[in-house]
Amino acid sequence: MKLQLATRHALFAILELASEPERQLSAAEIAEKYDLSTNHLAKVLRTLGRAGLVEASRGVGGGYRFCGNAKRLNLLDIVQLFEPIWPIGQGMSEPGDRTRKGQALRRVLGEIEEATRATLSSITVDTMLKIARRIPDAPAEDMIRRAAALR
């Protein structure tokens, strides 16, 4: 499964901010860590702000802060702000769908969509952060840690 770019931006932003909910980060700081476009991320953060998941403060030391409930907010909640993950049989109708083979194809693809929905809806932000903590240091984190030590 490949997520749209905006969805990936949103997931990284939420996970980064939720990992330290008291901390405020600018769009540029998050973008640098995850190698994202700052402009694109800023638009995504506005969408997340309208959804009540992050809040922004202006001025020196300002930035974005996570204001959702990490134990309740799941990945599907975030993904669906940016792209549709349809329940089985509810996606857009496509050519061939009214044939037997088209219906068979819809049924098989529906299995995949159902599994996708179940996976995304069962993993909360808090669980995702636990999964991330179990993964050994990745090169980007290592680089950030070394850069911070030099400051």
């Binding site: 179940a118 809806s121 069962s122 993993i123 909360t124 636990k130 179990r134």
Partner: peptide, 18 residues
């Protein structure tokens, strides 16, 4: 069951993966 989101989330939160 896929629709049993509460219990699925419980086991996920305890580190279970597919």
């Amino acid at each position: 069951a896929r629709e049993a989101q509460l219990i699925l989330s419980f086991f996920r939160a305890h580190g279970m993966m597919a």
